[in-house]
Write a protein that binds this DNA or RNA. Structure first.
Length: 268
DNA sequence: ATGGTTGAGCGTCAA
């Protein structure tokens, strides 16, 4: 096959924004779509929807109210069920599949890392502690995966790791998503076997965001964004990277998510 | 420093 396009999007309610998935498919023509914050319990998942969109292979892991991940694919997938129950919470933040690709299967991980609350202090805010623990567990998991190859990791990692992944580095050093414990933790996780597929194309000194808060009156004018959504690949796939797309226009879709889709094309 | 907005699902909680 010529190319494999993998998109990731925090959809912030699968059922509410199901119509926008058609826009996403039209704009990016992805072979695989990884979603986060589906906010739909498995029993209520619209099981016919993925095929109707042109993605006959799909897997989902959801719960009531919060979290939830899903993967829609044009190519056959098989769920990999041997990953840990992260932080022992069974909270539907991770889904891993093997994607059937002519050059050999690709191991694909879809993550929704805890947002971590508002106060960057483990004692005052357990949600921040949970976030740091989650990152440490993920790092340890991939450190133990000495067999890892042809793998792609995507998702809303809820951390903007680089200085130019936020609109104001100094001002955000104390804001959850850009604090040093988070950014160093994420870098350590990535260093266990991945390269940043988007920064592979976009220089580190160039501002790049994937999320703009709902709380700004004019998100484009204020442009107080953060790069929270990521695509990583194992080094053996780095040479197969062809391009990246951050679909910024999706932030203006009617009743859109506060995150925009990120897409990477590979020639695996 | 604060508040600003959105979604799930009907209380507020989470983001």
């Amino acid at each position: 096959m010529a190319a494999l396009r993998i998109a990731t999007w925090n959809i912030n309610s699968f059922r509410l924004r199901l119509p926008l998935l058609k826009e996403l498919a039209a704009a990016l023509d992805p072979d695989v779509i990884c979603l986060q914050e589906t906010k739909v319990p498995d029993a209520l998942f619209p099981t016919e929807a993925p095929a109707a969109l042109g993605y006959p292979f799909a897997a989902w892991r959801g719960m009531k109210g919060y979290n939830g991940v899903a993967i829609l694919s044009r190519r056959p997938i098989a769920v990999l069920d041997d990953a840990p129950d992260w932080c022992g919470k069974s909270d539907c933040r991770h889904l891993a599949v093997s994607v059937d690709v002519p050059g050999g299967p690709i191991e694909l991980h879809d993550f929704y890392v805890p947002a971590g609350g508002d106060i960057p202090d483990r004692e005052a805010n357990p949600k921040y502690g949970h976030k740091l623990d989650f990152i440490a567990e993920a790092r340890a998991y991939f450190a133990a995966r000495t067999d890892l190859a042809r793998a792609v990791l995507v998702g809303d990692l809820n951390i903007a790791p680089l200085e130019h992944d936020v609109w104001n580095h100094k001002q955000l050093l104390g804001v959850v998503s850009h604090t040093p414990p988070e950014t160093t933790g994420l870098a350590a996780w990535q260093a266990e076997g991945f390269v940043d597929a988007v920064r592979h194309f976009v220089p580190a000194d160039e501002k790049l965001y994937t999320w703009w808060s709902y709380r700004n009156r004019d998100w484009r004018a204020s442009d107080r964004g953060r790069r929270l959504d990521h695509v990583w690949v194992t080094p053996d796939l780095a040479g197969a990277l062809r391009r990246q797309i951050v679909l910024k226009d999706a932030r203006d879709w009617p009743q859109g998510s506060d995150h925009v889709p990120v897409c990477v094309e590979l020639a695996p």
